[in-house]
Design a protein around this nucleic acid. Structure first.
Length: 263
DNA sequence: TCGACGATGTTCT
DNA sequence: GAACATCGTCGAA
């Protein structure tokens, strides 16, 4: 009962309009902004196009890289839109990948979304209390896990959502709102009801083209997180993140040193 | 800032 | 009954 009340109040707390609060330690977004006195909602300026099926229909590794810099949008029931730029992903390659839920071609009611068409969401509960958010890619049983976002818009609502589970009232830094797979789900109010929905045509959740992709030379390929039991597959560089970005969940200094141009 | 640890409940063997 | 693609808190440094 109390929990229900808390959820409701958080959903109602979001303020409409753009939240221009910059993220500490993050270069200012390069997305062109309208003059301050003119809201984009009243100028007729259109938002970037939603990414369609064609975008998601690429192999897991390619999609994991291509998602960096794109913008995830969550429209709340009250109409407010939350936006975050993707800064960290992990590719799961399907039956051969010993770290994937689809390893060995295993298909269960839970992981069905992994086997559905590219752009299908696979949202699952982990450790009994957290949700993780995946996007199906090309190839049966292959998908991409979103691990971290840079909050762009609707930070107040994100903070409210994130604060629900925390005992102490200490305010979260902007960079801590979405820097983990379960954190971003919590901040954007993404739960299991989104499982198996289509990112290409859903009314409450979609992906928009980012202003510009990260410099390919700034994308770190590192081992995935939390899959130590997967043997050799745990070591493969299938996690991708934007080097130097404050919102990345886990840094891999060794992998960063392997980047071209690094000594 | 980092490491240890407990919370929590679904899913699968 | 064990495993689990995590997170928040606390105490030590």
């Amino acid at each position: 009962m109390l929990r229900k009340r808390l959820r409701k109040s958080a959903a109602e707390a979001g303020e409409p309009g753009l939240d221009k609060t910059p993220v500490a330690g993050v270069p200012a977004p390069r997305r062109p902004r309208p003059p301050p006195e003119r809201s984009i909602y009243f100028t007729g300026e259109s938002r970037p196009a939603r990414l369609g099926m064609d975008f998601f229909n690429q192999p897991g590794i390619a999609l994991a890289r291509a998602l960096l810099g794109q913008v995830l949008v969550r429209r709340l029931p009250d109409g407010q839109e939350l936006r975050g730029r993707v800064v960290e992903t992990e590719a799961y390659l399907g039956p051969e990948d010993q770290a994937a839920h689809s390893r060995g071609g295993k298909q269960t009611p839970r992981n069905k979304g992994m086997f559905m068409c590219p752009g299908t969401l696979y949202v699952y509960l982990i450790y009994g209390m957290h949700f993780c958010f995946n996007i199906s890619s090309q190839g049966a049983g292959a998908c991409v896990l979103l691990r971290a976002l840079e909050p762009l818009e609707g930070l107040a609502a994100m903070r409210d959502h994130r604060q629900l589970r925390r005992r102490r009232g200490k305010a979260l830094r902007d960079r801590d709102l979405c820097n983990g797979p379960a954190k971003l789900c919590q901040a954007l109010a993404i739960d299991r009801t989104f499982d198996r929905r289509q990112l290409a045509d859903d009314a409450a959740l979609w992906m928009e083209a980012g202003a510009e992709p990260p410099d390919p030379g700034a994308v770190v390929a590192a081992a995935r997180i939390g899959v130590e039991a997967a043997g050799d597959w745990a070591l493969k560089p299938l996690r991708f993140y934007v080097r130097g970005h404050a919102c990345v969940s886990v840094l891999d200094r060794e992998a960063e040193r392997r980047l071209p141009g690094e000594s």
